[in-house]
Write a protein that binds this DNA or RNA. Structure first.
Lengths: 135, 135
DNA sequence: GATTGTTGGTCTCAAAAAGAGACTAGCGCT
DNA sequence: AGCGCTAGTCTCTTTTTGAGACCAACAATC
């Protein structure tokens, strides 16, 4: 029963799908962070130049302070961005992209570009689907 | 006060960040779908060859049926995958990647490859961060 | 001929995540 | 004295996700 499942599913796949379990799958481990709702936006901004907390908040108007804080900390934790505190009178914090972050953003920016180029096609597909749904 | 915010934030940016609002931002509109927790996994599988519902479920062991159904419908809605029902005795359903899906997967696979290549670096950064946190 | 398994889902309920908005503290400006 | 700036945190509500039961028709098994 269990061996049949394996046999049916993984009968010599060319692609390595042998370890898609939560723990040992690199794709999931890495993607689950950068796939967040806000991560790509923040990365896109920081890829261009460093920004401060308040600047990012204004740049992405409808992110909550709470999620911005959390997204930034997650990105920092995974080594994509750096956090630097300047002891000015109201202390300011600057976020900047690390080398690792830039190396990730290289391929990621291609996906972002694809999104821009094919937005119309996606919207069209969506409209078609929704139309056929209300039949 | 409002104009000052704009002036401070968008003082002639080289990158086009003029419309990051929820509605008119292509990046957010497209990415919010493929950035889901499971979307990339399903796309990765379907990029290789078509799969049936149950096969996908077994392939990604810890996805719930509910989320698999929903993820597949979202991907279908955006035009990345096709859904074909075969009227066999217990009717079977096959999901396959469309042209649009493949064209998206081209750049996306580069990011996935990056994730595989740099998984160690990310885990290392994470460990460093966590260590400095419990100070 | 009754049980069991298979198909691809849906439904309900609990848990986790995200969003909205008030609140903090120290300093500058007026 | 009162307000606003900084970068956050805290709480509360709403949304999203996960776990698991249930469905109907048919096939093979016992």
């Amino acid at each position: 029963m269990d061996n049949r499942t394996r046999a049916t599913t993984f009968a010599g796949e060319p692609c390595d799908m042998s370890s898609w379990d939560a723990g040992n799958c690199p794709v999931r481990d890495v993607m689950n962070q950068i796939a967040g709702k806000w991560s790509t936006l923040i990365l896109e901004a920081l890829a261009e130049r460093p920004y401060r907390f308040g600047e990012l908040r204004r740049l992405v108007p409808d992110i909550s302070q709470r999620m911005l804080t959390q997204t930034l900390r997650d990105l920092q934790r995974d080594g994509y961005i750096d956090r630097q505190v300047f002891p000015t009178k109201p202390p300011s914090v600057e976020y900047s992209m690390t080398e690792l972050g830039h190396s990730l953003f290289a391929p990621l920016s291609k996906v972002l570009a694809w999104a821009g180029d094919n937005h119309a096609a996606v919207k069209a597909a969506r409209a078609r689907f929704d139309a056929s749904e209300l039949a």
